[in-house]
Design a protein around this nucleic acid. Structure first.
Lengths: 111, 111
DNA sequence: TCGTTATTTCGAATATTCCAGAAATACCGT
DNA sequence: ACGGTATTTCTGGAATATTCGAAATAACGA
């Protein structure tokens, strides 16, 4: 992942409203969640929600698929994992202090 | 870590210039790097650099200590690790799809 | 086709970010 | 105290973000 892409994704997550949206979608699991249900759950204006979702979709962190009249939103797990791997590398690259952690963080594999 | 804190830190990292600064500081290791050297290295105006450093220091991701006339900047490894752990939890919380990854991401322990 | 539900786009107000030059401040060595 | 180096603050302008309500669009069911 390029630095500019990583920055764009971090920026997308770097807003409380968007981070709440993302977290809610992660917790919805592979079934995803309709835009309307997100709106009920988070209690924000539909236009605001649409705006933020666009930002998350724009950087690839969220995908959308139609299902009849509703749009189902899902997180792109692989991309998030890539972002985390990028950050871990950035936290460690060219440093001599890269011994394995006592409690290494384990990421779940993609569903 | 609270959601708002995580969002603030992600936002701080979510700018290409600041991410470059952060990456440079990580690579500088525990010796850190003076503001002036960062300026030479990244070729940005001193005021701009100061502005961005303030943002990183403000959310705790970078610390500064004086050393004679120069200010040494260092990354706060523990805080970054906390942020990554928060993200991993957000990526997995309340989900049934949390089997261990084939290649779990290992974070180095603090220096 | 008509009505209903779901979602996005438009328009506008307000707020924030980003950048850099100039001036100010902080600290040291002499 | 003075001069020099290092860094921050001030200022301001251009660009972008955030929010909402109203209107527009999309997709179905009857």
């Amino acid at each position: 992942m390029k630095l500019d892409d990583a920055a764009a994704r971090l920026e997308a997550l770097g807003n409380p409203t968007r981070l709440k949206i993302y977290r809610t979608l992660v917790r919805a699991g592979e079934d995803g969640m309709a835009v309307g249900r997100l709106q009920d759950r988070l209690d924000i204006a539909a236009s605001t929600l649409s705006h933020h979702l666009k930002a998350l979709v724009g950087v690839g962190l969220v995908t959308q698929t139609r299902e009849a009249t509703t749009l189902i939103c899902r997180t792109n797990y692989g991309l998030m994992r890539g972002l985390l791997e990028y950050l871990v590398e950035e936290c460690c690259a060219e440093s001599k202090r890269c011994a394995p952690a006592k409690a290494p963080i384990k990421l779940p594999k993609a569903a």
